[in-house]
Write a protein that binds this DNA or RNA. Structure first.
Lengths: 239, 239
DNA sequence: CGAAGAATTGAGTCCTATCAAATGCCGTGG
DNA sequence: CCACGGCATTTGATAGGACTCAATTCTTCG
């Protein structure tokens, strides 16, 4: 376990909230133009290298982030090393919704990540002065809560095949919502990450994917999956 | 599956937010006295009989609730009948944090329940005019989110014994926070409910409880458990 | 007291984990 | 260019924990 505890490298080049491509998918969509510029003044653009930590469970969170590019994994660890990935953050996703001082989970970069960073304290104050943004944060948190509850059903009551299929369809939907709709779903994370997200082992993930592949429901492609039989997949996910 | 779809029976007797015993543990604690009275004007006290539904997954939620007395179970169902309990609501707990029009889960009363009901629309407006309350709701939602993430770890990475022990210790803590601290933890829910919360079967729950009992870590009492060996239990829960 | 539901206990099976090995992938350097 | 090393992934064989099915015991309550 080797944290690179760096804070990423600040890259303040040509950022402009007004023309930001991820804005419509982010919490910033809740802000009028004027406030947007105020928020921009608070923000810095940061790059994270692969495996670099965005935040560490239990430690004070200096910043909150909106992911701009790449994919981060959010996870919790047990003292004995067991890991549960509680989510993957894609472009547009906000990390640090709770605004709590100490982070409830760890987060690191799966590959190179670019994010919009806000100092937590300053952002919190900013929010307090803008109920509309707070409302948006709350809606976002509520949405995450409902996703987490779906995940509880997945982990508590679904078998390996269902978990994998739900995972793939869920990812597809998320990519669709940020304008990357496709039958080919990118899998920026490794098999072990998928396993730790779905409460399985890497072997079971691999076997299940190859079985789905043999049965012509999916096609495994480099760093992704093509969904071949949407109907059957949806039927499996429905339960 | 027989919903009693009734809305509970309204009992407007002698309610008074100012002297409300659950107020310090509820979201109402965020309100100054004046607002509290305004909120009281919105609220009605309702009783729910055992098994009566507070809300139904996917249906418009007419009201949001603060539980005053008793225990409700929140759950989601799969079309084939598999059930996952996503939480138990104890006195002071708020149901409907998301303020969304349609409920993300179903909720029903485990035993007789008394709740403070607010019409959803009116409550939502009320909140919009009071950022401090919104902030409280958001903190509450963030807290629930972090609990849900702990539960993900529990369901994804812990074995049956650990799940049971975490469940018992978690319940104990919750009772403690509402002024009912004790080594004897009430279990208002049945074994099947515990199973559906922990992603186990009723048989596994029963067997695990009796094993813990045989090993003198707990003592099974009617409608509850006495925690005998807090140290060993904590060690198991820590992982 | 007796019936109905809840909980416990028992026996056997299955799904997923575990342990182990082989294969594939990719960047590096000879 | 190709061989090599390291890592990720796949595949195989076996074991184990929780599930399933079934029966018994315990509670509750009319």
């Amino acid at each position: 376990m080797h944290h690179r505890l760096a804070q990423g490298c600040v890259v303040p080049l040509g950022r402009d909230c007004l023309t930001c491509e991820t804005r419509p998918h982010s919490i910033c969509a809740a802000l009028p133009e004027g406030d947007l510029l105020d928020l921009q003044a608070l923000s810095t653009s940061v790059h994270f290298a692969t495996r670099e930590m965005l935040m560490v469970q239990g430690q004070p969170a200096g910043s909150v982030y909106t992911i701009t590019c790449g994919c981060a994994r959010l996870y919790t660890l047990l003292p004995d090393g067991r890991r549960q990935i509680v989510g993957f953050a894609l472009p547009g996703d906000f990390i640090g919704l709770s605004l709590a001082q100490t982070a409830g989970f760890s987060a690191d970069a799966i590959g190179p990540v670019v994010a919009c960073a806000f100092p937590r304290a300053g952002f919190s104050q900013f929010v307090d002065a803008r109920p509309a943004l707070l409302r948006r944060l709350h809606e976002q948190a509520s949405h995450e809560l409902s996703l987490a509850q779906e995940q509880l059903m997945l982990l508590g009551r679904r078998n390996a095949q269902e978990r994998i299929v739900c995972f793939l369809l869920g990812l597809q939907q998320r990519f669709a919502r940020i304008g990357r709709a496709s039958v080919t779903v990118p899998l920026p994370m490794g098999r072990q990450d998928i396993a730790d997200c779905l409460g399985l082992t890497i072997e079971t993930v691999s076997r299940t994917l190859t079985r789905l592949s043999r049965e012509r429901m999916i096609l495994l492609v480099p760093d992704g999956v093509r969904l071949l039989n949407a109907e059957r997949l949806a039927a499996i996910a429905a339960g």
